[in-house]
Design a protein around this nucleic acid. Structure first.
Lengths: 338, 338
DNA sequence: TTGTACGCGTTATCAA
DNA sequence: TTGATAACGCGTACAA
């Protein structure tokens, strides 16, 4: 570990005070041009670099945003993070990333670390397990701005950015119905998760409005967002004899699983089985035009989330800040299949 | 901004010195059980939280790793980051993420910010533009451990983790040849990028060993790793009349572009056109078994990268640390197409 | 076992 | 325009 050059060193060299050096370095207007340039010169010569941590300690602001997501390596989350980072960087903020791995325990630990690291704000998408929000209320008490995105808790008085899942689900199921399907299965995550519930409600709503009877046996809850899970779930469903003519999947990865399974089973897609799901448009665009996608603007969600929390952080009259909930509509991407 | 509780506050409350509090809080053996538990009790009551920045300033270690990647929202990079974060977290390290957006300028800025933030180590994958490595040598002079991954510079005396691109490319092209293809096109990025060059060399090597003549016109350099680019590039190639019977793509996303284009053109895949590319196995697994994939173990690369730099950071005899270059072999994933 | 005093690198306040 | 000094929150050598 090398000893690093500090303002003290350059003050000593020039026989001036550290205060002067500090001011000169940041181009304060009350420093003469001569000393300024002298300081600059020596600073360069000695390879001086300001210590951001020390600065944070005094300024009580670290210019760091903390982000907690269930996992980084899923398109939706990495896109959001990318969006967050891009606007944060533009405004001079750094981003610290953590993945809760869908564990409540880990999420709590992470939030604690983040808070103790003097981050200026925290953006969080809850893990599947998270039911208790004491760790979030703690942050409020500590005066740390928090923003919830995508996996949120309605009752928390915080800014939120979410996808309009009800609308999206309803819309895409309607799309399937318009194509003449009426035995539409739903494969998705645990209904205890608000997101899952919303999409499920959208699915039900579309059926209802079109006077299609709801069949509980066509609803499959799986525990993990993994293609193998949906693949197996679908195979079971198919073999059970209670066959759907369409499947609405909670996520694109699940749709891929169903697609793979139906290929295995020799089912003609979308003639005998239409597949649809939430996700990013790549799937419809490049993978299989027979899969209809409800494209989530994940990158934009991240951007908006960062913008909102930065607004809150830098708000002049803190008391008057109003929490906003932004509901972003996804885009239906459906191609006429060949 | 709320005033936060410090050891001073709890020292005052108990009429003891901050030193005692500090020691008690971290369970020092030289503190009596009584004071220890008294301190703990008050600390809990007053909602004390240690300030990690202040601690870093003294300890000269922040327990933070800096990561710089070209972009977060591409599978390969987000997977690597996920791998890095997972092992870092286990060892008590935090991770700070930046994306260079393939800009040398931004990369340099980021590295400076990271270094000034007292990160304990930096993991970096160079941007496409990066040709000059002064910013990296700066880090060395400042005594900050650096690890290069995937987009590296051979001549830098640092630990590196990379994919065996030559091997992978050769292997996958051989696979195409074994399937009877001999007019194999290559669509990839700028050959100035070492990774691109390696894969190109592998491609050439496979042709050579199989006594297939190399046709420069079948080599297409595109500027961006985007499916639309490869799609257009392929269409042009096809229309030029100089038609390949197989395409080896630098990346999976490019393969998807070619697949989309060939569907548009009514080309039978893989009968009239076999497609192969580097990427993650999802594509072969779920998207189209007719695309053969050279699966990069991106998550594992991240894990290994983190392990290596942590080893370097925590090495006892710093002088004896030996830089290692880990070359990870990708896995060919090819299904018999239907 | 505990306290005193100083230091980490920087900035802010006040005085000169 | 500049300097001395305290402060940010914490850890530690040294002394008691």
């Amino acid at each position: 570990m090398k000893k690093s050059i500090t303002i003290k060193d350059i003050a000593k060299k020039l026989n001036i005070s550290t205060a002067t050096v500090s001011r000169a370095l940041r181009g304060s207007s009350e420093i003469s041009k001569e000393t300024k340039s002298a300081v600059m010169k020596i600073a360069k010569e000695m390879h001086y670099h300001p210590n951001l941590l020390a600065r944070s300690l005094i300024n009580k602001t670290s210019k760091v945003l903390g982000v907690v997501v269930p996992t980084i390596n899923r398109q939706f989350w990495s896109n959001s993070i990318s969006g967050i980072e891009s606007v944060a960087y533009k405004k001079g903020y750094k981003v610290m990333i953590f993945q809760s791995a869908e564990s409540y325990q880990k999420e709590v630990e992470i939030v604690e670390i983040l808070a103790n690291s003097m981050v200026d704000g925290i953006l969080i998408a809850f893990s599947k397990e998270t039911q208790d929000y004491a760790h979030i209320e703690d942050l409020r008490e500590r005066g740390i701005p928090v923003l919830l995105f995508e996996r949120v808790c309605e009752s928390l008085p915080l800014s939120k950015v979410i996808t309009d899942d009800f609308f999206g689900a309803k819309c895409i199921v309607n799309h399937l119905i318009e194509r003449g399907k009426n035995r539409i299965a739903y494969i998705g995550g645990p209904l205890s998760l608000p997101v899952c519930m919303e999409r499920f409600r959208g699915y039900q709503s579309a059926l209802l409005e079109n006077k299609i009877s709801f069949d509980q046996d066509l609803v499959i809850e799986i525990s993990d967002f993994d293609a193998d899970f949906s693949s197996n779930a679908f195979k079971n469903l198919w073999h059970s004899g209670n066959r759907p003519d369409a499947v609405f999947c909670f996520a694109d990865i699940l749709a891929l699983g169903v697609l793979a399974a139906s290929k295995e089973l020799g089912i003609k897609v979308p003639k005998d089985l239409a597949i649809a799901g939430f996700g990013n448009d790549d799937i419809t665009k490049y993978v299989s035009p027979s899969i209809s996608t409800m494209a989530q603007p994940s990158f934009e969600i991240g951007q908006l989330a960062a913008k909102l929390i930065l607004k809150e952080i830098n708000f002049e009259e803190e008391d008057e800040f109003v929490f906003r909930t932004e509901i972003i509509k996804p885009n239906l991407i459906a191609r006429e299949s060949s």
